[in-house]
Design a protein around this nucleic acid. Structure first.
Length: 271
DNA sequence: CACGGATCCTGATGGC
DNA sequence: TGCCATCAGGATCCGT
């Protein structure tokens, strides 16, 4: 489910409410992708300093260390004063003086990991190889172009890999490539400088719009206040195979790249 | 080291 | 309360 916009929308929906809260207790359900890396009891008494985001990770800063939360494919978070008893897909609860943070994740591809600091090996294993933040100042066209020049893979897969630029998942990769007029199958190193520049702008535009729209709710995404996203209602290509392009009317095509579905307009997007 | 494929897990959906 | 195959927003690991 969650790509950068959903994670950012989630962060924005509870950061102010949880900041300054003291952890009363923590509990785990079924195993997630990785072990927590600390006994839950050791979180007790810690104070939440801030909630940041890096790529698709939520970083919950504590006075000593931080929690790295990843939503995987099907994860979502709620933060509320009182919550019902944990259900079968609720796998992490953080009870605080200001409310309970709960991770629900049916497929359990997500994770909650404690690291003593962001520089620690545990954190670096997860964050160390991540590419640049697409909505930050570090995302500049020259560096982006140069990075693409070194990859022979299809541009869509380069975006998904997250080593050049983070946060662009399966929905927004298709959407950004549409906006930039680039076929998803085009090899990254075949993109001209102007086209790379156009793609860079398209990525920023798509992700920023998606954050504004509250993310995409395809099936069950909701932010920490239980609100759905609405980006998907205006999607240009994602999930629209066979339907007319909103720009030129040509039927949207679908294909598979690396076991992921891709959508594009054969008229508007050039190889 | 860049690339492609298999893999983790559960649930929804559609064809038979 | 059928069964089976396929697909789903992610990312790592493992051969080549």
């Amino acid at each position: 489910m969650p790509e950068l916009p959903e994670v950012e929308v989630t962060r924005l929906s509870f950061e102010a409410r949880i900041r300054g809260a003291t952890v009363l207790s923590a509990s785990l359900g079924k195993p997630l992708r990785w072990p927590l890396g600390i006994a839950t009891a050791q979180l007790q008494g810690q104070v939440v300093q801030a909630v940041r985001r890096r790529g698709k990770y939520l970083l919950i800063d504590l006075n000593e260390g931080l929690l790295l939360v990843h939503l995987g494919m099907s994860g979502s978070v709620v933060f509320a004063d009182t919550l019902a008893e944990a259900g079968k897909h609720d796998h992490f609860d953080l009870l605080t003086t200001q409310g309970t943070l709960r991770l629900n994740d049916p497929r359990r591809f997500g994770a909650v990991v404690f690291a003593p600091s962001e520089a620690d090996a545990i954190a670096q294993k997860l964050l160390g190889r991540l590419g640049v933040e697409p909505l930050g100042d570090g995302f500049d066209a020259a560096t982006f172009y140069q990075a693409l020049q070194q990859r022979k893979t299809a541009i869509k897969q380069v975006l998904l890999a997250g080593e050049v630029v983070v946060g662009v998942g399966n929905i927004y990769a298709s959407e950004a490539l549409f906006l930039a007029g680039i076929r998803p199958t085009t090899r990254a190193n075949r993109l001209s400088r102007p086209r790379a520049l156009r793609l860079k702008a398209a990525i920023r535009q798509v992700l920023a719009l998606a954050v504004e729209k509250g993310g995409s709710t395809l099936r069950d995404f909701s932010n920490a206040q239980g609100e759905s996203g609405h980006f998907q209602e205006g999607a240009m290509v994602y999930g629209r195979q066979g339907q007319p392009c909103r720009v030129c009317g040509t039927a949207i095509k679908g294909l598979r790249q690396g076991q992921r579905s891709t959508f594009f307009c054969p008229q508007c997007q050039k190889p």
